[in-house]
Deep mutational scan, measured.
Amino acid sequence: MSIQHFRVALIPFFAAFCLPVFAHPETLVKVKDAEDQLGARVGYIELDLNSGKILESFRPEERFPMMSTFKVLLCGAVLSRVDAGQEQLGRRIHYSQNDLVEYSPVTEKHLTDGMTVRELCSAAITMSDNTAANLLLTTIGGPKELTAFLHNMGDHVTRLDRWEPELNEAIPNDERDTTMPAAMATTLRKLLTGELLTLASRQQLIDWMEADKVAGPLLRSALPAGWFIADKSGAGERGSRGIIAALGPDGKPSRIVVIYTTGSQATMDERNRQIAEIGASLIKHW
């Protein structure tokens, strides 16, 4: 067993022997301040990774656009098919120029040779490549099948209805392509620590998230040296922004954090800054 596999296998073990965790309302004060600064709703939840206990939450059962955070769930569904012998990570998928959609920095470079399922998941999570996500959605049967996968996990809230990039439209009061912070946090925890996926697939999923290259201005910008984070960000229309993450000190994750916002007129930089400040408060009061 590799060191990384050992780390993920012992996530519940280490967490069980940690000192009790206590909620700190100071972080919620910052979440509410972010709402004021952005002029928009902000949803927040913080779960203990081992027990699933909610440590703090704000608007945990209000719907927010998922945006690209759905790509972690998508690759979880792909990995479940791999575990069941219905898919192979090494299978190569070929596609054409007509398949390319807006923001496809990886797939646009491989029109000639195609990409493997493993490479597509890596591109979808680490670079948020939209064509990679659409190609992977095709392998599982489309958005409705991802929703069905989530329902089978016990998540009857999260739903995907459309493809990239239309799913980022974020129309107010439109339930399409949305989740709730509580539902997303619980589902992410199941994917990373539950028995739904094999140990190898859980490790692969967290490795992809740990290698995320496009979430630097968010929670990662607030992390002290030595902290662990595996995350996936999302951005959408109407001032929408979000991030889902597993993080913790001492090089291992111990909490799940989900943050979503929508309806702001603020710039992307300002949305990023507010999420980073929430992260800084979380870490300060850990």
Rank of each mutant, 00 (worst) to 15 (best):
K32M: 08
L28C: 06
A230W: 03
E145K: 15
S281D: 15
E164N: 01
W163G: 11
N272S: 09
G248V: 00
S281F: 14
E175N: 06
E26L: 14
H151C: 05
D155E: 10
V258T: 05
L282F: 11
N50M: 15
L120P: 01
P253K: 04
V214C: 15
S104W: 02
A124N: 05
P105Y: 11
F64V: 09
G76R: 01
D212P: 07
I244N: 02
R241S: 10
N50A: 09
A230I: 11
C121R: 01
E56G: 04
I275E: 01
K30W: 04
G263F: 08
L192K: 02
L111F: 11
D129I: 01
L89W: 13
L146E: 02
R189L: 11
Q203T: 03
Q203M: 03
R91P: 01
K232Y: 00
K232G: 01
I259Y: 07
D269N: 15
A246K: 14
V72P: 12
N50D: 11
T139R: 14
G76S: 07
Q97S: 09
A40M: 04
T131I: 02
T158H: 02
Y260R: 00
L188G: 08
K53C: 12
G141S: 12
S122L: 11
Y44H: 06
E210H: 07
L196Q: 07
M115E: 06
A246N: 15
S281R: 11
I125V: 05
W163E: 07
E210Y: 14
V157F: 04
E46F: 07
G216M: 14
S128Q: 01
L188S: 05
E61F: 15
R159L: 08
V31S: 04
V31H: 00
E119P: 01
P143C: 13
A225D: 13
E210G: 11
L160A: 12
R92Y: 15
R162I: 00
A211S: 11
V106W: 15
L79W: 01
L192C: 06
S104E: 02
I125M: 05
E166P: 09
E62S: 06
L197M: 15
S201V: 14
T262G: 06
N130F: 01
S68F: 01
G90T: 05
R162S: 09
S128W: 01
K53H: 13
K53F: 14
G154L: 04
I278C: 14
A170L: 05
E237Y: 12
R271C: 14
V257G: 01
I93E: 12
N134D: 08
L79Y: 03
D33A: 04
A77E: 10
A280S: 12
T262S: 06
L160C: 08
T131P: 07
T267W: 07
I54Y: 15
I243Q: 09
A185Y: 01
R255S: 08
K252I: 12
H151G: 05
A200I: 08
I283T: 14
L79K: 00
A133E: 00
R92M: 14
V82P: 01
V82S: 07
M127C: 06
G248T: 00
L196P: 10
S122N: 13
Q203L: 04
A40E: 08
I259C: 14
P181T: 09
G142Y: 03
V82K: 06
A84Q: 15
I283G: 13
W208H: 12
N98P: 08
M115T: 06
T138L: 15
I54W: 11
M184I: 04
T179G: 01
K213Y: 04
M115G: 03
V257M: 07
G234T: 00
D83N: 11
V258N: 02
L167M: 06
A245V: 10
Q274H: 09
E56V: 07
S68T: 01
G39T: 09
P181A: 14
T179C: 03
T107D: 00
R59Q: 12
E164S: 00
T261Y: 15
D36E: 14
K32T: 10
M180Q: 13
R220K: 13
E56R: 06
E164Y: 03
S254L: 07
I275N: 00
G263A: 08
A222D: 15
P249L: 11
L192T: 15
S233G: 08
L136N: 02
K53M: 15
K232W: 01
R220W: 03
V258L: 04
A246V: 12
L28Y: 10
W208M: 10
M127T: 12
S281L: 05
M153K: 05
I45E: 10
L89P: 12
S281K: 07
K30V: 05
V72Y: 00
A148R: 05
V31E: 00
L136D: 00
P181V: 08
L192G: 03
T187G: 10
V157R: 09
I275Q: 00
D99G: 06
Q37F: 05
G239C: 07
F64K: 01
K109N: 15
S122A: 10
N168H: 06
L219F: 12
R241T: 10
R189F: 15
L146P: 00
K53W: 13
A215F: 15
G90M: 06
I125S: 03
F64I: 02
R271Y: 10
D231N: 08
L247N: 01
A124R: 01
I93T: 10
A246G: 13
M180P: 04
S57I: 08
K190Q: 15
R202K: 04
L223Q: 08
L223H: 03
D48H: 07
G90L: 07
I278V: 14
D99Q: 12
T158R: 00
R189H: 13
R63Y: 14
H285I: 06
K71M: 00
I45D: 02
N134K: 05
T193Q: 14
Q88D: 14
D36Y: 10
Y103P: 12
E102Q: 05
N272C: 05
A40S: 05
Y44I: 09
L199A: 08
E108W: 12
D177G: 01
A222Y: 05
P25R: 07
R162N: 14
Q203Y: 04
L73Y: 09
